[in-house]
């Protein structure tokens, strides 16, 4: 087994007096789709922000390819929960942003950049909306812009914070399928990118991920890692299968008690 892409060793994070994440140790393998689920208050978003380099752990070590993570970097692309699109830039302006102003597009000629931007916009189904501003788009379309902006820079690692949470059920299912296609579930595992995907939706985690890390809350600790051995490529058959339902059920049982407690309080 190869060295992990990302390694978290006893990572803790506290804000003032409250411990949000406690002694979290976790390996993310190269090319795997790892989902992190847990009830609200388990510090999922904090874990992602630390991986992105936007927050520093209070203690513990985080490494990427064996080197410590000390700040943000273009090799780790982030898709934020509320999209964080630049309102003054059009769809195209948002998608090309990292390529034009960041290191991701340095090696490309302007023509190659433009070609990749158009291809990415087409891939997420936004062709024809290139010149619209974010405020002119529906929630689902903004979501796609954020996804395209992430994909255009072709980062080694995709960090996604509840990217589908704000969508209606149908759009969500469609974008789950698209996400897997873009990630490369049809390609051999060695050609896939590494994904860390935060979600509170258990069925979504099971459908998408190779492994699901289940966190407990207050403070956030690793409860269990569940291997999802559903065959790929996955699609509607996967969602209807008995194995899918059984895995979802078993993860639900892991966090049910805490989820109830969180809801009732």
């Amino acid at each position: 087994m190869s060295a992990p892409k990302i390694r978290l060793e006893a990572v803790s994070k506290s804000f003032d007096a409250s411990v949000v994440v406690e002694k979290l140790s976790l390996d993310v393998r190269d090319g795997e789709f790892l989902a992190i689920v847990g009830p609200s208050g388990c510090g999922k978003t904090t874990v992602l922000n630390m991986l992105a380099g936007l927050e520093k752990p209070s203690s513990g070590a985080m490494t990427l390819n064996g080197r410590p993570i000390e700040g943000p970097g273009a090799e780790r692309g982030v898709m934020f929960q509320d999209y964080a699109l630049f309102p003054w830039r059009t769809v195209r302006g948002n998608v090309e942003f990292g390529l034009v102003y960041g290191p991701a597009g340095q090696a490309l000629s302007p023509a190659q950049r433009a070609e990749r931007v158009e291809r990415t916009i087409e891939m997420v189904g936004l062709k024809g909306s290139q010149d619209k501003y974010p405020h002119q788009l529906s929630g689902g379309m903004r979501q796609r812009v954020a996804l395209a902006r992430l994909m255009a820079s072709e980062p080694e690692i995709l960090l996604m914070d509840e990217p589908l949470a704000a969508l209606d059920a149908q759009t969500r299912v469609i974008l789950q399928d698209e996400l897997l296609r873009i990630w490369g579930q049809d390609r051999p595992a060695s050609e896939r990118r590494t994904v860390v995907f935060i979600t509170h939706a258990i069925d979504e985690a099971v459908f998408l991920a190779d492994r699901v890390a289940v966190l407990s809350s207050h403070p956030g600790r690793l409860k269990q890692i569940v291997d999802i051995d559903l065959p790929r490529p996955r699609g509607d058959e996967t969602r209807r299968s008995g194995a899918f339902a059984r895995l979802s059920q078993s993860i639900w049982e892991l966090i049910r008690e805490e989820a109830y407690r969180a809801t009732m309080n």
Binding site: A52, G53, L54, G71, P72, G73, A74, R76, G77, V78, F80, D82, A84, F86, F97, G98, Y101, G102, P103, A104, S153
Partner: peptide
Amino acid sequence: RLIAAARTMGL
């Protein structure tokens, strides 16, 4: 969040 987004793109 907009500043954070730009930082993660390596600006």
